[in-house]
Design a protein around this nucleic acid. Structure first.
Lengths: 409, 409
DNA sequence: TCTCTTATGTTGCCCTAGCCAACAAATAGA
DNA sequence: TCTATTTGTTGGCTAGGGCAACATAAGAGA
């Protein structure tokens, strides 16, 4: 029996020792991570980036190949003097399901390791579904998609993007105001139905991860991601290349941060927050628009010449500027990515935001910092959710079980 | 020559491979980290916490002993059945200098690995010193302290806590408004004079690290630290047990975050920020106090019964509540630590803050979150700065050169 | 077409560091 | 004093990354 100082036990994660298995896992994971992000990569590049020995890379790639995760092929185009390097690619035969339940529809897709969408189903929900109904619908769509996959494909799991707060430890949706879901053990429910491992996280957080891997955040290690949708404003922060989750997974609620004394409430009942000031619905109303997507909204907005609309848009841009300035001070990011409605708003008058946010942040922190629109469009949540489902496989390629498409009875 | 996709090169850090040396370094570091934080620790505890084998711990401790970093001794009190475990302690003979230049004084101290202060000199500066003057003064004090150290002691380096923004990569002070220093290559200057390695960081960030290791943050991995001083409000964020530094080291400027439309400016010219609303000097003035420390301020404040003072204090508490609520939403921390003046303010009426911050953050994120006063007092910056100076040694015990007290000619 | 240069894949061997098992040592309790 | 329990110690094992030598496949130049 031990008599550890009580606080030490909690430190066990940081101060864990490592052994040979950890090395191997780490190196396999490093190689697979590179392949996921950049697709086909020559072995020589893997050697250079990882700093490992040629022979080690050879060994690692062989193991990944035996695991059925990557394939090797001879280079098509020769890249110069010397023996051409073999090109390694993530296989297209390992897939994940991505799920996004929202107010008006449930979307499910099948994606490969490198983020390619193989199939996608969007099922409209006439009435806002209860959690149990939603889980069943998701399950049915997945079964149908699964039946259409080639038999030798294997499945990493199901990733779910939730417009709300998710306790990542056990996959419980604590609160999804728009869906009116409270304390729903979504992961457990869907796992029991589908028999597949289920991973859940907040939608904006997954958006941030998707942009980091395949979008405007590629190559950055310090990213602040702000996502505006019909339901409000969410955020995700990438720090040191990894998602900032906080104690329970609720970190990054960047839309619910108070920046003004304005008494209007946001969707969560907080006043003066970014979400309460930057409202897509207000602009839609002013433009006389109904249910349009962000692209169409952008076009109408740019075409509109009324002073009233301009005033609303600019007031929202100014509020966004303050928030951007704040996040520069807080995170000192390399880049701030604006997605969804915020991207539309930004594009309306980029200079206004760029000049104003500088008033609300320290000049030092602005150095070499850029603000960009996100580039992944409507499929960003699918890519992010699938990435989440793959994350276990990515971090421990040799120790993660994949499920066959056809279940053996 | 390689033709890597341009963004991949920046990823090299995450996707670096690891080898045997990395394991050894990591394990030595894990053991030394534990010893630093908890002081004397039995070998059995090291085994249990790290998860490593008994024989491995034995080997690691032997190496640390040979490096002169730890000592082993038989247990004084027996702790139960079985052979008593040997107790390992960090040596007291490896020290670091801690430096804190401020407006009215320059403070330098000598500390051991476990944060014990061996010697301390506070030299008042009648006029606010220029950077070069300050560096020379620091150097002289260090020489004097060094001369008084036993000859067999060894020095890890100099850690400097700066009331301003520091570019951590090269140790340049970008801006320290209070000292009126701009773009000062402090680390390089002091390194050239002293011949010792110099590490610099922002004062509040170092405060956060000190509280994590030896203060109210012990055992937590997600900490938001807010520090109020005469010069303003600084912040430090510990995420996953590590300091959040951002792209260049400027992250954590939590005092310069705008939370209201109030037009008053803070020390950096930003309006409506936490720092502009929570002002120690205003309260001092209202209480008719001069240059007192936080403890005395707290006593006078508690004794005071005037409505005017109460109004000021409560307004400041309310502003602090909003900021606390915001940081709960942003970081989902386990604990928020209030230090310096903010601790005084909090203690004046803790319930007011505790009830009000709940209005400005999502209830979900408040679960199991606590707000506490920091417990390290006036020496917090010395502890933090010394910890910074030791960090290189801690992270690579076998590969870090220590300097002898007596220089061989 | 034939070398020469260059870059990469392959193979066998080495070495390090963590693990394991057996044994020794030091305690508490009966 | 004897037993159970826990921990330190020792020697051998093993996995996996590094290394060097060699093989291979290009391009360049004559």
């Amino acid at each position: 029996m031990s008599t550890l100082p009580p606080f030490l036990s909690r430190h066990s994660l940081t101060t864990k020792g490592s052994n040979r298995e950890d090395i191997r896992r780490h190196n396999l994971s490093a190689v697979l991570t590179l392949l996921k992000r950049s697709g086909s990569t020559p072995r020589s590049a893997l050697t250079e980036i990882t700093g490992l020995n040629r022979s080690t890379i050879s060994d690692l790639v062989t193991e990944l190949q035996e695991l059925g995760l990557v394939t090797e092929a001879e280079a098509v185009t020769s890249q110069g003097v010397g023996r051409p390097s073999l090109v390694v690619s993530p296989t297209e035969e390992v897939v994940a399901f991505a799920v996004n339940p929202d107010v008006d529809a449930i979307t499910v897709a099948v994606l490969t390791l490198s983020g390619k969408i193989i199939a996608k189903v969007r099922q409209a929900t006439p009435v806002q579904p209860a959690a149990t109904t939603a889980v069943e619908t998701v399950h049915q769509i997945i079964e149908q998609l699964r039946a259409n996959l080639p038999g030798h494909f294997r499945i990493a799991g199901i990733g779910v993007a939730i417009p709300g707060q998710v306790r990542t430890a056990d996959g419980v949706i604590r609160l999804a105001p728009r869906l009116n879901w409270v304390e729903v053990p979504f992961a457990r429910m869907l796992e029991q139905l589908s028999g597949l491992p289920v991973y859940i996280d907040n939608d904006a957080s997954l958006g941030a991860l998707a942009e980091r891997d395949f979008g405007a955040g590629m190559g950055y290690r310090e990213i602040v991601y702000l996502f505006g949708s019909a339901g409000g404003i969410g955020g995700g922060v990438i720090h040191d290349g990894m998602l900032l989750r906080g104690a329970a997974g609720y970190a990054g609620e960047l839309g619910h941060v108070r920046i003004s004394d304005d008494p209007h409430e946001d969707a969560s009942g907080l006043t003066g927050t970014l979400e309460s000031l930057v409202r897509r619905d207000l602009l839609l109303k002013a433009l006389g628009l109904g249910n349009v997507d962000d692209e169409e909204l952008g076009e109408v907005l740019r075409a509109d010449k009324s002073a009233k609309v301009r005033k609303i848009a600019e007031a929202q841009l100014d509020a966004l500027s303050i928030a951007v300035g704040n996040y520069v001070n807080i995170f000192n990011p390399e880049v701030i990515l604006l997605a969804g409605y915020l991207s539309t708003l930004f594009s309306y008058e980029p200079d206004r935001l760029m000049s104003r946010f500088r008033w609300s942040s320290l000049t030092t922190s602005q150095a070499r910092m850029s603000v960009k629109p996100a580039i992944l469009g409507a499929n960003v949540l699918m890519i992010g959710a699938a990435g989440l489902a793959f994350s276990q496989l990515i971090s421990a390629p040799a120790n993660t079980e994949l499920t066959r498409v056809k279940v053996k009875k």
